[in-house]
Amino acid sequence: MTSIGTGYDLANSIFSPDGRNFQVEYAVKAVENGGTSVGIRCKDGVVLAVEKVITSKLLKPGANKRIATVDKNLGVVYSGMVPDGHHFVDRARDEARGWRETFKTPISTSDLASRMGGYLQAYTLYQSVRPFGITAIIGGFDSELETPVDGEVGSGPSVGAGGKVEGKHGGPGLYMIEPSGMYWGYYGAATGKGRQAAKAELEKLNLSENKLDLMQGIKEAARIIYVAQQDNKDKEFELEMSWISGADGPTKGRHMEVPKDLLEAAERLAKKAISEDDEEDEEDDDEKNDDKMEE
């Protein structure tokens, strides 16, 4: 970052001579210090998880939720500045409401990601605002059923032309949006402090094969948060998780908190997996030492 201190990093919407927008890069820095967030797109739904660092003993346990619902079938989790995340969620809810007003149907995951990508990008364009200090993960399940439009009464004509195109509709969706407004669709997404470790773990799951189901997804998400947290073990944290299935799955198409018993079971497994890893590491170390001694 040779251009730091040259003045190009002071204002938003200013490019430095080497073509960078420093304000956006600083926003990314804010994200990189936040608690880790993870999203996994399973074959039958989506799991979202976040590591909430406990900053004070006086905080009410289990309160201060970080995963938010948008409409009924979408969930948002984010790493970075929490009040900015709140702003993001408010806007996402407004977009979902506006979509319903216009189209009389819920917004799809990809459309919400597109709208929010546009919104974040606008905050990189003007001197009068600063970019969002968050990277957000949007998970959703677009209904695969033939759903009525809002306010529909009756069933309409029982014969005659229909409007629906044959084929498969709906399904799970997962998107991650960065402070620049850039977004991509993901099989597994991670952001925040522990994102490197989390990404490495996500890659091992071979999510693109579309074999992992929600129940496994919950266990993996919990484990990944615990693995990603290994680097600052001294900090206490709370695990928060949510999930979304299709209409015939456990959440009936809605975005919901993972039930307490499932969450606790997943946490127990995660802790166990981590302590086993530690032991293996220690064993490895021992072996190496042995090797050395033998040399």
């Binding site: 309160a63 939720k65 619902t69």
Partner: peptide
Amino acid sequence: TELAIDEAYASSTTT
């Protein structure tokens, strides 16, 4: 429908 969705936002984030 909108009102119910908004109300669910408030209640689902609470402990």
